[in-house]
């Protein structure tokens, strides 16, 4: 894994875009007719949603490549992508809850997209837990990859089952329709989160790489370490 600075630059650029997009969406975008100022939550919620799905799809790709091609690089990126996906999913559920309260009067409205995200959150958090309990690095890589493939394939099934289950009771529109919103803050923030996550996933993958390398490196005999001035 490389040592170059590009992920820091990318992540920094992402953060800058997020500040720009958020300020725009918060203070300068026009007010929505029916939802009022609460609509402004969409300027962070929708970008988070897009990127959560993107990161988890990347995790799926890493899992497939890890199983087919092997090599520690894909496993490291897999670990990074799963962790990033869990963070974004948790954030997404929190944002969705905050949006639902003033809009529907409840903290959770069983919206199919959001509920699917919650299920995904638990599924991938469980995979991170699995990873923590396996000591053998080879088994760890194979098992996490298998688990990610299995969980990802479930996504459309979960979505349709929840949507169907919910459709008989509620008919509210999903929050992701932002046809009345101003598009620019949304796009800027979407790229903001994207660049931020690209940078962070790469950095997190390097961390995973280093940890695994340290795991399998033979320990230096302390005499040698002292003699060579490393201690």
């Amino acid at each position: 894994m490389g040592n170059s600075r590009w992920p820091f630059v990318t992540a920094g650029l992402g953060l800058a875009l997020l500040v720009w997009g958020s300020v725009w969406g918060l203070f300068y975008a026009p007010r929505e007719v029916y939802m009022g100022d609460v609509q402004r939550i969409m300027y962070v919620h929708v970008p988070t949603a897009w990127n959560a799905m993107l990161v988890l799809t990347f995790a799926f790709a890493c899992a497939v490549l890890s199983l087919l091609r092997g090599g520690w690089g894909w496993d490291a990126r897999l670990e990074a992508a799963v962790e990033g996906g869990v963070v974004l999913s948790a954030l997404l559920c929190t944002q969705g809850s905050i949006w639902a309260r003033p809009t529907w009067g409840v903290w959770w409205d069983w919206d199919p997209r959001l509920t699917t995200t919650a299920v995904l959150l638990f599924a991938f958090a469980g995979i991170l837990a699995l990873r923590g309990f396996v000591d053998d690095p080879v088994k760890r890589a194979v098992w996490t990859a298998v688990a990610v493939v299995i969980a990802y394939v479930d996504v459309p099934l979960v979505y349709f089952s929840v949507r169907w289950w919910n459709s008989l009771h509620q008919l509210q529109s999903t929050p992701e329709t932002v046809s009345r919103a101003f598009h620019w803050p949304l796009r800027i923030n979407a790229f903001g989160v994207l660049f931020l996550m690209i940078g962070l996933v790469e950095l997190r993958a390097r961390l995973a790489w280093q940890r695994r390398a340290a795991e399998s490196a033979p320990p230096l005999p302390s005499g040698v370490a002292v003699a060579t001035g490393r201690l």
């Binding site: 638990f122 469980g126 837990a129 309990f133 688990a147 479930d154 979960v158 089952s161 929840v162």
Partner: peptide, 27 residues
């Protein structure tokens, strides 16, 4: 098969299985 080979197997099996089978459970 996976968790039988590891520690904390009794926690991990439901942890991994439950979110996965949501569609089957709902149906």
């Amino acid at each position: 098969a996976m968790t039988a080979q590891m520690r904390a197997r009794n926690t991990l099996l439901p942890l991994l299985l439950f979110p996965l089978v949501v569609p089957a459970l709902l149906a």
